[in-house]
Design a protein around this nucleic acid. Structure first.
Lengths: 291, 291
DNA sequence: GCACCGCGATACCCAGAAGGTATCAGACGA
DNA sequence: TCGTCTGATACCTTCTGGGTATCGCGGTGC
């Protein structure tokens, strides 16, 4: 069966007259008769009782007519959904993010996007920068948020936000009295830092900073990013972190500007080849929300 | 768009490969490519990203695929419904019945039919025999239950049940002491009877009975059939009724066999031209339930 | 009673589109 | 670099959907 059969059947059933139905369908009456016959033959059912002054539906015809509407509606919905997906209003975006963003960035982005595109399904995965790049490549996520440069071929980045680095100190720390801190003043401090494997770009950036200031940092604890500030607050050492962590309002922690340190860049990363309209919408809104 | 396009699209989407899809569809690969192209052109959407080792769905393609299933399901349901209607398992039967049957016949029939064909909608209308015949002809009801012969052209009848006539007397009536009553013994009694207009056949039958016994009945009250026995119980007079009224178990009423009276026939009536399978099923089950 | 009219069915033709075969173009892997 | 695998293209064939002319059959009106 083809939709043509169902369309023709519906019109004949509504008109109760082959001639009028043919006119409405912009075809001649004989081919219409033939198509209805073909439909009846395929179903093995008589759909109409042909009388002298028109046609009446049989019981199977009545049943078919009542349910044909649902077929056309389902088709309309399918087509509409395809167009909406093209417009980025429908679909699914899987997002990777680093733990340090959980408190200060992602929530705003998700909220803004959900408000704008409520029918795009959002899935978030907390992943280290390294894991994000790998997940992007094999399609487990569609977009990632990382710090530090990304040089992978096949991935495109955009700077979502630039922010200064600051020193995180435990309350009452000797340096906490100072309004701003030089990198060299940290030479003797124990450092808490995320393992290089989780984000080599950021790790190497910090190492470079210290080396430039003339020392190699004493790393007392390598912590996943999430717990980093907790360790600092607990007095294990100091850490160099993006300024936006201030928004966490974590007690027991003091943040001081780091003089001479470069700004860090929060990057949005996605597959260059990914042409999903939902992703495009997401990128657009994410960049706006993070500005 | 035709269903062919959607079928082809679905298979290509599932196989992610034009060659394999074409094999599954029993056609060659080039026409399959062409049909997909035509579908994309009609929708104004790219549904697949053609890569070197196959094909991947785009966002609109994914959306369309997810909803295509619903189209095919709706179609299956429509076709199934048509076949079930043909089998008399689906549809609608509108039933007319005389009030005297409300208590002793219809309920059994409806119960039996509903149990056997729960998805056939049953509509019942209480109508006089005359109204039933008229309603049958213009399609307001599909089947009627009446007493007395029906001679209308275009209507077919079947005897659902034959039963004797009995005399209904109020409690304590002079004749109630007798085990059986002759028609002639009623000559002096006041009669309660339904108006001729509501059922001429039955009316004429009773008149004939009395005339044969040598008297013309004294009609004190013409009541719609429903209230007939109430009037008898209230002492307005006697009535001649089908024996099945005994099942009502109405207090204040005595029923006595009427000697020499013919049996009355409960008839099922329907349009000869009506070929509704649901009606056929109903007739079959009604006759069985009334046996 | 007869002719006419209105309806769907049938016969036959044509054109367009679906499907087939052969082949191309490009990317990937050996 | 060549072979292979992919979908696309070119071109032909076949089938079928649609057109016109006409039929058959009731019902209707004179």
């Amino acid at each position: 069966m083809e939709l043509r059969h169902l369309r023709y059947f519906t019109v004949v059933a509504e008109e109760r007259h082959f001639g009028r139905a043919a006119k409405r369908l912009q075809i001649a009456q004989p081919p219409l008769s033939r198509q209805i016959h073909a439909l009846e033959a395929e179903l093995g059912l008589r759909l109409f009782d042909r009388t002298r002054r028109g046609v009446v539906l049989t019981a199977p015809g009545t049943a078919l007519l009542a349910r044909s509407q649902a077929v056309f509606e389902a088709l309309d919905q399918a087509i509409t959904a395809a167009h909406r997906a093209q417009a980025g209003e429908l679909g699914r975006v899987v997002i990777g993010y680093v733990a340090s963003l959980a408190y200060v960035g992602i929530a705003d982005v998700l909220r803004a996007f959900r408000a704008a595109q409520p029918e795009v399904e959002l899935v978030v995965r907390e992943l280290s920068p390294q894991e994000q790049l790998a997940s992007l490549k094999d399609g487990r996520i569609d977009v990632g948020f990382v710090r530090g440069p990304v040089t992978d071929a096949g991935l495109t980045t955009a700077v979502a936000r630039r922010e200064p680095l600051v020193v995180a100190l435990p309350n009452g720390h000797r340096l906490a009295r100072r309004a701003r801190i030089e990198v060299a003043q940290l030479a003797a401090e124990p450092f808490v830092i995320a393992p290089r494997a989780r984000g080599p770009a950021y790790f190497d950036l910090l190492m470079g900073l210290c080396r430039t200031a003339g020392f190699a940092p004493r790393i007392v604890q390598e912590a996943p990013q999430l717990d980093l500030v907790s360790l600092v607050a607990a007095g294990f050492g100091v850490a160099i972190v993006p300024e936006s962590l201030r928004k966490m309002g974590r007690p027991g922690l003091v943040l001081r500007p780091l003089v001479g340190a470069p700004h860090t860049e929060l990057l949005i990363v996605w597959r260059t080849s990914d042409s999903s309209p939902a992703l495009a919408r997401f990128l657009e809104l994410a960049r706006r929300a993070l500005k």
